[in-house]
Simulated scan of single mutants.
Amino acid sequence: MNASHTVTPRHLLTLDGMPRDALNALLVRAQAFAEGHYDRRALDGIAVCTLFFEPSTRTRMSFTLAAQRLGADVLNFDASTSSTSKGETALDTMKNLEAMGVRGFVIRHKVDGAVAELSGHANPGTSLVNAGDGRTAHPTQGLLDMLTLRQAKGHDFSRLKVVIVGDVKHSRVARSDLQALRALGTGEIRVCGPASLLPDDGTLQGCVVSHDLDAALEGVDAAMMLRLQRERMEEGLVASLDEYHRDFGLSAARLKRAAADAVVMHPGPMNRGVEITDDVADGPQSLILTQVSNGVAVRMAVLEALLRG
């Protein structure tokens, strides 16, 4: 990890700028964890807090399991039942927990850049992991998606054609996946969605952009579907859920346009019948539950790298 980037030996804030070697090193370590090779006392005596200001199932639970499997003491913070409901700031909350001896913080926040801002106030011995902030980044999701692709398709990403489909505009997952795919030298990155749900801020630089899902799926090795994030979007960006599914939903018939051995991914939670049909989500080409499993291994690798380093 290189201190000149926003990934430092102390924090994991984003995958933007992470060198390929550093990214691959985390994936190799995560693969070892996925195979059961790890020290259950690696983080013995270290306190880790999951500091979540937004709801979460997969990310929070997998970080909790990851820390526990490495022997850490885990505190789970729930904003709805904490002093934040009385007006305490996120910074004051973090500083008070630091004073109790917490060394690792896994933070989710609805505000773009919130975790990076908090990292600037952390004590020298404290490490922060961005578990998703606003639309900015979700680096461990990007890492687990790359581990899942690596397991399915091998280490050479230059041979791959990957399509990301759906609500990229509001997706921190898409941003982290794009950063990781670029870092790993992916042969062709396609992005498909309605014009109203694609960003115009440079996020899609170097991607093949399409508004035609049938064309975008032709010959791809992996289709990464995104959740339609209705809670983050202004009204009117999508005419209706039925129309969205008609134009951008992945069905078994549509999937036949991809390579015969193509895999399907989704970060969850899924809107079944909107961005993906049941027969695809639960079908033989789906790696969705593998992604969930890999999330624990990746988060173990990140916590070990930051807190044991």
Rank of each mutant, 00 (worst) to 15 (best):
35 E>M: 12
185 G>F: 12
111 V>S: 10
47 A>K: 08
215 A>C: 02
17 G>C: 09
115 V>C: 08
207 C>A: 15
231 E>K: 06
301 A>T: 03
26 L>P: 03
194 P>N: 05
219 G>Q: 09
306 L>C: 10
261 D>A: 15
72 A>G: 12
136 T>P: 01
270 M>D: 05
119 S>T: 06
66 A>K: 06
113 G>K: 03
5 H>R: 11
40 R>W: 00
41 R>C: 07
53 F>W: 12
206 G>I: 10
68 Q>D: 13
115 V>K: 04
83 S>G: 04
158 S>L: 10
243 E>Q: 10
306 L>N: 00
121 H>T: 00
228 L>P: 03
118 L>A: 05
212 D>T: 07
76 N>V: 15
308 R>T: 13
58 R>A: 12
128 L>W: 02
133 D>V: 07
38 Y>H: 14
196 S>G: 05
33 F>D: 02
104 G>P: 00
257 R>S: 10
247 D>N: 09
152 A>D: 09
213 L>K: 01
20 R>F: 12
127 S>A: 15
207 C>M: 05
281 A>P: 00
183 A>L: 10
16 D>E: 14
9 P>K: 05
298 V>I: 14
174 A>L: 11
235 E>I: 09
60 R>N: 03
299 R>N: 05
61 M>R: 11
117 E>I: 05
203 T>C: 07
189 I>Y: 02
129 V>H: 01
106 V>H: 05
299 R>L: 14
108 R>K: 14
278 D>R: 12
200 D>P: 00
242 D>C: 06
271 N>M: 15
168 V>R: 01
29 R>H: 07
294 N>Q: 06
233 M>Y: 08
125 G>F: 06
157 F>D: 00
62 S>F: 04
33 F>V: 09
247 D>F: 08
163 V>K: 06
198 L>Q: 01
98 E>V: 07
294 N>G: 02
87 G>A: 10
212 D>V: 04
238 V>M: 13
82 S>N: 01
96 N>M: 13
230 R>I: 08
270 M>W: 09
119 S>G: 04
265 M>S: 02
49 C>W: 01
64 T>R: 08
94 M>Y: 03
264 V>S: 08
296 V>R: 02
171 S>F: 07
251 S>I: 10
95 K>A: 14
61 M>H: 11
53 F>R: 11
57 T>I: 08
279 D>N: 07
129 V>M: 09
179 Q>H: 14
49 C>S: 03
261 D>I: 07
248 F>V: 07
110 K>C: 11
105 F>W: 02
150 R>I: 13
110 K>H: 15
242 D>R: 13
98 E>C: 04
212 D>W: 03
159 R>C: 08
141 Q>W: 05
25 A>F: 07
293 S>G: 12
242 D>S: 13
99 A>Q: 10
38 Y>L: 13
185 G>W: 14
152 A>K: 08
120 G>F: 10
132 G>C: 11
28 V>F: 12
234 E>D: 14
44 D>W: 13
44 D>N: 14
57 T>P: 00
53 F>Y: 14
100 M>A: 09
7 V>D: 01
159 R>T: 15
173 V>K: 03
139 P>Q: 09
289 L>P: 00
